[in-house]
């Protein structure tokens, strides 16, 4: 019994191990440039339609990236830096709605929808399992036997 499942178990171990290693928070500092880029990609460039500060080439975007780098070196936290820009430009400068207030809906609703959908499928599968398989009744069997005898 175990032999049949062994290859799958080994596979599962390999895969889970790899994923865990990949997801493990790594030591070692992020460079200032990478850190700046990370924060900048969450902020909207003011002069553009929907580009992030990280992607935009306007001088205001470059000034913002320089400003973020300065703040990182001063030791300000990510949340503090984001708050500086929210204070200046309003919530709409964040490309990802924050989790408090109305913004939480945009994160929660899709997850809820997927869970409801998955739940619906599981319920339907259960219902189908519980339905008895169609079995011919004795009357049907007799009819078939009659026809066979005739031909």
């Amino acid at each position: 019994m175990l032999r049949r499942w062994l290859p799958w178990i080994v596979l599962a171990v390999l895969v889970v191990g790899a994923l865990a290693y990949s997801a493990w928070p790594r030591s070692g500092d992020e460079s200032v440039a990478a850190h700046t880029r990370r924060i900048a990609s969450d902020l909207r460039c003011i002069d553009c339609e929907s580009l992030s500060v990280a992607d935009s080439a306007t001088s205001s975007a470059r000034a913002t990236r320089a400003d973020i780098a300065v703040r990182i070196r001063h030791g300000e936290s990510d949340a503090e830096i984001r708050q500086v820009y929210v204070d200046r430009y309003g919530e709409s400068v964040l490309l990802k709605p924050s989790s408090n207030g109305l913004g939480i809906l945009v994160w929660a609703l899709p997850i809820a929808a997927l869970l409801i959908g998955a739940g619906g499928i599981v319920l339907a599968l259960r219902r189908w399992q519980r339905q008895p398989r169609l079995v011919a009744s004795t009357a049907d069997e007799e009819l078939v036997a009659e026809e066979r005898a005739r031909s």
Binding site: S41, D42, S50, S52, E91, L95, L102, V106
Partner: peptide, 15 residues
């Protein structure tokens, strides 16, 4: 609500 919110690349990528 009158809130000005943006939903951009980071949200879509994450979801």
């Amino acid at each position: 609500r009158g809130n000005q919110l943006s939903v951009g690349e980071p949200y879509f990528a994450r979801m």
